[in-house]
Design a protein around this nucleic acid. Structure first.
Length: 861
DNA sequence: GGACTGGAACTAGGG
DNA sequence: TACCCTAGTTCCAGT
């Protein structure tokens, strides 16, 4: 371990250097990182694009072996180097710490992903703004350039009142400044409109008028507010105000449990101070994190209250525009008095490096298992920045989702992290168009705190021993960012249209006595966030049968929503390439049909001779383009007993299966296609027992594109090893377009990886497989889906796993050491999936749209 | 009064 | 070019 760490540190410096900064694409990159690990880190050759590299994120970018990973221009940010202040501060820091800090800085890409601003309610646009540093911007060449507003950091929000921060040109985030805090709600901003000019009240255009407002002082004033990204970057506008208070208190707390020295060091370097500390977050990220911190008080500048921490810091860093220095500003925030939180701070994960949010982590490891005891409802209408909060995500049966960490016997509280992830068939990653939104108020019983993690808002919730490490998630809502804002981001390859399904992703990091950190992650069932979709798309919550004899004839009850008299149930069997091998419409008993219940007769399979179970899918269709997600079903040989679903609700089922696939009921949920093979790393000493068990679900997944994907071991981030826990990193190309494989790299100490075979294939039969998939999953139907969110990070013990089907997946080893390949890579079948993902019926538009978006981005850039 | 909600109008794009 | 449809975003009003 230590060796690894040491190595890591050693690398760190290099690594940091290696981080590619991006070109204009940075944002995308970042985005990519989190969202879609597109980057083929492993690729020996120079990254296709810097973007990819960036996407790789810090973790991936670094090459363990020190091999020149990134050709792309990298920004070597050494905290000190660039900023005198940093140097000073760092100098005082212990090497290790310094390294970390450095590393963090080096991870430029991280920043890039999503603008912190994006995080903020104002987000979308803001995302760009995220690039805090002017330098970054320039380098990135954002669209912003176009308009004065462009400057990302300046988010309007920053200086609501035209605070100094808001320099002309800077202040406005490119299209609307992201930062405009939600508070700035579009509406308010008449200015915005002005900006936009002709725009209608509804900002569709990417650069949507509204966002532009930042330039106007007036606008700024309006927006100034609390929401300003500065505060809580991600904070929804609404919340932000509140947050501020809380956050402040929070920060202090954080400090409490974190190593003060580390914090100080980090703060000095990063200025952010919050939870993210441990992580090697890029400067920007840090800044953002700062934002979280309610350092408002810290503001130096006029209007400072409105200023974002991040902004300040960024500004300083980048251009020194701010007179303030990190020290002054950021550092001060450390001094913030501790606040009144009653819950003792959960033991914060202090490791300097936390796994990137797009890393696939396991849901269980050894004795530990993170489970979603109560799943969120399948529908939750997300709110726009321009709207008021739509409340916390609720559970199907009422109440709220519940997450529990099993197997943790310590008395130390922990921090449960929550962010909004994707729900498509690709690797789980932060969703570019949705952010978690902190809910506060009388009805909220669970304290929480928002932080930014690489431009992705992360809600931190205490997991207390007294509560049996169980948390009721009644403090998390979902914020929708305007598609136009996100799509214009340079490097952003995802499209928002019809990309309205998300998952709540929970993570917990546990420091082990050995010094290692075990990180677990579990993702909820998909949540449809679109009002329209929620009202129109049929949804299957449960199915009474999972299997049937080939002869069919049995009746299956489907519980769900939006069933109509003309609803059809179609059974489909697809080949690996997505082609339909067989498709037939089942007979629906319309007499008994109800909006939430449908009785269907299982159609006979195309052949009655079955020697082994055949996995197929079915979906409910209310008309063209109105299909439910694919649901799994299997025809089994006659001698195999039919599996009937228990009458419980999904949640119950989830509980039952929780160990493997926490929170996912087998049948009820659509499955996720197994695209990725996950290599599981096992290094756990502690987790032997659970490991096998858990492992099944934890797979490191990698989606390799046809060849690309291999993750080079080198990529493995020793850096992150700081924490000593191995993390898998997913590298994916950001764009749907590119079939680039998603590769997950396991961070592990060399030699610790278990043989690849030990790891469960993504498609393992474990409950995890039952995970929902996007409607488009069809093609993968035959292979069980893997639990997207689960991978092994820390120590997971290998368990028995299924091996992915050859055709679908290929494995590649990711180990740095050259030790046996541990990571398996699966190749994603792009074209079809994409089409399906977004336009089940009509892929062309989707593709076209993407092209348009890309072009726009390029142009803007 | 403010947070939630549900519903629907408005708008842009594509066909 | 007008019309229709779809889906995203913004508004409004009720609880």
């Amino acid at each position: 371990m230590k060796s690894a760490e040491e190595d890591a540190f050693g690398f760190t410096p290099n690594i940091s250097l290696s981080l590619p900064l991006g070109n204009a694409c940075l944002p995308s990159q970042y985005h990519g990182l989190q969202s879609s690990p597109n980057i083929s880190v492993t690729e020996p050759q120079p990254f296709d694009s810097q973007d990819e590299l960036r996407a790789a994120g810090f973790y991936s970018t670094v090459r363990p072996n020190g091999a020149p990973t990134l050709e792309s221009p990298r920004i070597e940010i050494t905290a000190y180097g660039q900023f005198p202040e940093d140097e000073v501060q760092e100098s005082s820091l212990p090497m290790a710490k310094r390294v970390n800090s450095i590393v963090t800085l080096s991870l430029p890409s991280a920043d890039g992903y999503r603008d912190p601003s994006c995080l903020s309610p104002a987000s979308s646009v803001s995302s760009r703004s995220g690039l805090s540093d002017a330098s970054y911007e320039s380098s990135f060449s954002y669209n912003y350039d176009n308009s004065p507003q462009n400057s990302p950091w300046q988010s309007p929000s920053v200086s609501p009142k035209g605070s100094t921060l808001a320099l002309p040109g800077e202040g406005v985030a490119s299209c609307g400044s992201p930062r405009h805090s939600p508070s700035t709600s579009p509406r308010t901003s008449i200015t915005d409109d002005t900006w936009m000019g002709p725009r209608g009240s509804r900002p569709n255009s990417p650069c949507g008028a509204k966002r532009k407002y930042s330039l106007n002082g007036s606008d700024a004033s309006h927006r100034s507010f609390p929401y300003s990204p500065s505060h809580s970057p991600g904070l929804s506008p609404h919340t932000s105000p509140r947050l501020s208070v809380t956050e402040e208190s929070w920060l202090p707390n954080t400090n409490q449990y974190t190593n003060s020295a580390i914090l100080a060091a980090i703060n000095a370097l990063t200025t952010d101070g919050v939870a993210d500390l441990g992580e090697g977050i890029p400067i920007k990220a840090r800044k953002t994190s700062l934002e979280h911190s309610p350092t408002v008080s810290l503001k130096v500048e006029p209007g400072g209250g409105e200023l974002r921490h991040g902004d300040l810091c960024q500004d300083e860093l980048s251009a020194n525009r701010m007179t303030l220095k990190k020290e002054g500003y950021c550092g001060s925030f450390l001094d913030v008095p501790q606040h009144p939180y009653t819950w003792t701070k959960p033991k914060q994960y202090i490791s300097p490096s936390l796994p990137a949010l797009d890393w696939q982590l396991p849901s269980s490891s050894g004795p530990y298992s993170l489970q979603i005891d109560v799943q969120p409802k399948a529908h939750h209408r997300a709110h726009y920045e321009t709207e008021g909060s739509r409340g916390a995500v609720k559970a199907l049966a009422g109440g709220h989702p519940v997450v529990q960490l099993h197997g943790y016997m310590e008395n130390e509280p922990l921090t449960l992290q929550l962010f909004i992830g994707t729900a498509d068939d690709r690797l789980l990653r932060p969703h570019a168009f949705y952010q978690v939104h902190r809910i506060t108020g009388k009805t909220v019983s669970t304290p929480s705190h928002e932080i930014l993690h690489n431009n992705t808002k992360v809600l931190e919730i205490p997991l207390l021993p007294e509560n049996n490490m169980r948390a009721i998630i009644d403090c998390a809502g979902i914020l929708k960012l305007r598609n136009s804002d996100i799509e214009l981001r340079k490097g952003e390859t995802d499209i928002g249209r019809k990309n309205t399904r998300v998952r709540m992703v929970f993570r917990v990091h546990m420091n082990q006595p050995s010094g290692r950190t075990v990180s677990l992650q579990v993702a909820s069932n998909p949540i449809e966030c679109s009002q329209r979709s929620a009202q129109e798309l049929p949804l299957v919550d449960k199915q009474s049968l999972e299997t049937s004899a080939a002869s069919g004839g049995e009746r299956m009850v489907l519980d769900g929503h939006n069933f109509q008299h003309d609803s059809k149930v179609v059974f489909v069997e697809k080949a690996q390439d997505g082609h339909h091998i067989w498709e037939t419409e089942a007979k629906v008993e319309r007499d008994t049909l109800k909006p939430n219940s449908l009785l269907v007769e299982i159609p006979p399979y195309r052949t009655q001779r079955l020697s082994t179970p055949v996995h197929v899918n079915f979906y409910v269709c209310n008309g063209k383009r109105k299909r439910s997600q694919y649901q799994r079903f299997a025809y089994v040989p006659a001698n195999v007993p039919t599996i009937k679903t228990e009458p419980h609700d999904d949640y119950d089922a989830a509980l039952v299966c929780s160990q493997h696939a926490p929170a996912r009921p087998l049948h009820p949920k659509p499955y996720y296609p197994p695209q990725l093979v996950t290599p599981v790393v096992s290094d756990l000493r502690p987790c032997v027992v659970g490991g096998a068990y858990a492992v099944g679900q934890q797979r490191l997944v990698a989606k390799p594109s046809s060849g690309t994907a291999s993750c080079s071991p080198s990529t493995s981030p020793k850096l992150h090893d700081l924490s000593q826990s191995p993390f898998s990193k997913c590298l994916q190309q950001p764009g749907h377009q590119s079939p680039v494989p998603h590769v997950s790299i396991i961070q592990e100490t060399p030699g610790r990886f278990p043989p690849p075979d030990l790891y469960p294939p993504s498609g393992s039969s474990s409950p995890a497989t039952s995970q929902p998939s996007t409607p488009t999953d069809g093609p993968f139907a035959q292979t069980p889906g893997m639990a997207p969110a689960q991978t092994l990070s820390g120590s997971s013990s290998p368990g028995a796993q299924e091996i992915p089907k050859p055709a679908e997946r290929s494995r590649s080893s990711l180990q740095e050491d050259g030790s046996p390949a541990t990571a398996a890579v699966s190749i994603k079948e792009e074209p079809q999936e994409l089409d399906q993902m977004y336009l089940d019926d009509d892929p062309l538009p989707f593709l076209h749209h993407r092209l348009v978006v890309m072009k726009k981005a390029e142009n803007t850039h």
